[in-house]
C-alpha cells in the first residue's frame, strides 16, 4: 500500500556510521541471514522452475517419454495463433470492464468515507471489506446460481421489475461482464481501503485553504484530491492489472472459458495446454505472458516516475 511513500528507504543507519568495517560482524552478516529464507525459496521455487520452463518452451513434450527439440516452433505457433491473441484480448476486455469502473467507484466511496462527519462510517468501511474476505471459489459457485438464465435470482429480479432477462453466463455478450462483476464485487472494497489510506495522508490544511478560496466540492475533488492520490491510484491500477491478467479461478469455475471461448483468459488458456498434455507450448505461452507482464509493469513504473 505504501509504495506511495518515498521517504523511508533514505533513512538508513549507515548514514550515521560511515564505514561498514566499524560495524560489528554480527550486524554485517545479519541482513544476509534475514533475507536467506526468501532467497532460498526464490531460487528453489522461482528461478529453478523459470529455467525449467524456458528450456521446455523449445521442446514438444507430453510429460512422458523423451522430449523433442523444436526450436522456436512453439513461439511462432502461438504468435500466429488466433486463440493465443484472443486469450489476451479477452483479458484486455476484462481489464477495460473492471479497472476504470473500479477506480471511479472506489474513489468516490473513499472520498465519502474520508469525511469524519459521515454517520456509520465504520460500518460502511467494514462492510466494504466483506466481499474481500469471502472465499473466491465459493463466490464463483454462487455466481453460477445467481446468474443462471432460467432460475437465477438476478433474472427473477429483472423480470419482476419488468426489465429484459439476460443470458448472463451463456452468451458471448454477457459472459465477460458477468465475470467482471464478480471481480469488481470481490475486490472493490479492498480498493476503497487502499485509496482511503492515500486520502488520509492529505493534510486537512490543503482543503481548508481551498475552502477559503471558495472552491466547490467537485472542484476540490478534481484539482486537489485526484492529483494528490494519483500515485495511490496508479499503484492500485498496477495491482489490479496484474490481478486481471492472472485471473483464473473465476472463468475456470464460473464459465469454464466459454461460451465459445469468450471467457478464456490469458491464464485459463495457459492452463488448457496442461490439460492437453502439451507442455512445450504451455511453457512458451508462460514465457510470453511473463514478457507481457514485465512490459506492462515497466510501463507503469515509468508512468509513476514521470508523475513524480
Amino acid at each position: 500500500m505504501t509504495i506511495t511513500r518515498s521517504a523511508a528507504p533514505a533513512r538508513r543507519p549507515s548514514g550515521r556510521r560511515p564505514t561498514a568495517s566499524r560495524r560489528p560482524s554480527g550486524r554485517r552478516l545479519a541482513p544476509y541471514a534475514f533475507v536467506l529464507p526468501f532467497v532460498v525459496l526464490f531460487l528453489a521455487f522461482g528461478v529453478y522452475p523459470l529455467i525449467y520452463t524456458f528450456r521446455l518452451s523449445f521442446t514438444s513434450w507430453s510429460g512422458s517419454g523423451p522430449a523433442q527439440w523444436v526450436g522456436w516452433d512453439n513461439y511462432t505457433y502461438l504468435l500466429g495463433s488466433d486463440a493465443f491473441w484472443s486469450s489476451l484480448a479477452d483479458s484486455a476486455v476484462l481489464w477495460l470492464l473492471i479497472v476504470p469502473a473500479q477506480v471511479v467507484i472506489a474513489l468516490i466511496a473513499a472520498v465519502l468515507l474520508n469525511n469524519a462527519k459521515l454517520r456509520m462510517r465504520g460500518f460502511y468501511r467494514t462492510v466494504a471489506l466483506v466481499p474481500f474476505v469471502t472465499p473466491l471459489v465459493a463466490m464463483a459457485q454462487i455466481w453460477i446460481v445467481v446468474f443462471d438464465a432460467d432460475y437465477g435470482a438476478v433474472n427473477r429480479l429483472l423480470g419482476a421489475a419488468g426489465l429484459p432477462q439476460l443470458d448472463w453466463l451463456t452468451s458471448t455478450t454477457w459472459a465477460k461482464p458477468t465475470l467482471a462483476l464478480l471481480f469488481l464485487w470481490k475486490t472493490t472494497g479492498f480498493a476503497i481501503v487502499i485509496l482511503l489510506s492515500g486520502l488520509q495522508s492529505i493534510p486537512a490544511s490543503v482543503y481548508e485553504a481551498a475552502e477559503l478560496d471558495g472552491a466547490s466540492r467537485t472542484r476540490q475533488l478534481v484539482s486537489i484530491t485526484v492529483p494528490l492520490v494519483r500515485r495511490v491510484v496508479l499503484f492500485l491500477v498496477v495491482m489490479q492489472t496484474l490481478a486481471v491478467f492472472q485471473m483464473f479461478a473465476e472463468p475456470y469455475v464460473v464459465t469454464g472459458g466459454g461460451p465459445y471461448g469468450s471467457t478464456t483468459t490469458a491464464g485459463l488458456y495457459l492452463y488448457e495446454h496442461l490439460g492437453r498434455s502439451d507442455l512445450g507450448t504451455g511453457s512458451a505461452n508462460s514465457f510470453l505472458l511473463v514478457a507481457l507482464v514485465m512490459l506492462i509493469s515497466l510501463l507503469f513504473v515509468r508512468l509513476l516516475r514521470e508523475r513524480d
Binding site: F45, G46, P49, L56, H273, G282, S286, V290, V293
Partner: peptide, 16 residues
Amino acid sequence: TLMLPTIVLVVPLLLQ
C-alpha cells in the same frame, strides 16, 4: 516475484 503471475510457474513447479 511480485510481478510474476503464479499461473506461469504451475507446469514447471509440478514437474519439479
